[in-house]
Amino acid sequence: MNRTKRLLVALVACAAGTSFAQHYPEKAIRLLVPTSTGTASDLTARFVSEELGKMLGVAVAVDNRAGANGVLATQTLLGAPADGHTLMVMASGLYANPALYKNLTYDPGRDQTIVAPLNQAYFALVAGPSFDVTSVKELVERAKKQPGEVTYGSASVGSSTHLAPELFALRAGITLRHIPYKGGAQAITDTAGGQVNIAMTAVPTAIPLITAGKLKALAVSAANRSALLPDVPTFAESGIRGAEFVSRQSIVVRTGTPEAVVTKLRQAILKITSTAEYARFLSAQGLEKETAPLDAYLKSGPEETVRWAEMVRISGVKQE
């Protein structure tokens, strides 16, 4: 195909995409959430879906597809038409999946397109009230005396709540026993109930139970303290360096979605996330605003896949 024909093809495709975007959306939009209800991803999705529905004039329904570290939700996304009517909340930990699953049929950095950033979630290391440790120092001492006997719950194998404690254990020089669940809510419930000793979860998820005295916060995983947990030290302040862990969340669509549709969605979502109402939502939920430059963030999928593969490697999690 010569240069003139290629240019004509590109112009026709562009015109078709623009025409499609003018009529988009043509029906209700589904927003997939790869976690159970009540999590940071779920709460964010519900805020954004309501506002996005108002802006686009259609219903935006939240569809929770928890399990397998987001594989179920991602497969649903990639099985839907690439027309912008199926979206997904993408937590950065889902980029670890190619390093976690041998037979994964997709590459998140290639097969998903980032529409817009949403926020960042700090993690808290928490313990149940019946587990008699009150600090990271005491936890490390206990784990060294009883290798493999201190248990922690996670949302699933390979999830952020699995990798983060493994990274912490590696940096602290201890061995913990992993108890995986089918969703983060049950893992936290069982931590509070004493069925497992500790867990690491997003600050917004932990706050209500910490406030109610059903969980004890031992440390925050970010480089800085959380505004909602100002008295809780970071890992570094607790003597554990290199265990920092933050989850970034974004909205993604299936790669191949017309660029004009992606642009329309991006403009709407960025408008939502720039409002004072959204800032208050982030503050209330203990979430942080994404600070990375937009252009770099939108291209970060392949880099995130590489970064999380390294996280899997150093944490020692074995591929399934």
Rank of each mutant, 00 (worst) to 15 (best):
M90W: 08
A91H: 15
G93Y: 12
A96F: 06
A99I: 06
A99P: 00
Y101F: 15
Y101V: 15
K102R: 14
K102W: 09
L104V: 04
L104R: 01
L104E: 02
T105D: 12
G109A: 08
D111H: 02
T113G: 10
I114C: 04
A116Q: 07
P117A: 05
L118H: 02
L118T: 05
N119G: 00
N119F: 09
N119L: 05
Q120N: 14
Q120A: 15
Y122M: 13
F123N: 08
F123P: 00
A124R: 11
V126F: 13
A127R: 10
A127P: 10
A127W: 09
G128Y: 13
S130A: 15
D132Q: 15
S135R: 12
S135W: 14
K137A: 15
K137Q: 15
V140E: 04
V140R: 04
V140L: 03
E141Q: 11
E141R: 07
R142H: 14
K145L: 05
K145G: 10
Q146L: 05
E149K: 11
V150K: 00
Y152R: 05
G153Q: 07
S154E: 11
S156N: 15
G158K: 06
G158D: 11
H162L: 06
H162N: 15
H162E: 12
A164T: 14
A164M: 14
L167S: 06
R171S: 07
I174D: 00
R177G: 00
P180Y: 04
P180L: 03
G183Q: 12
A185R: 12
A187E: 08
I188V: 14
D190G: 09
G193Q: 14
V196N: 13
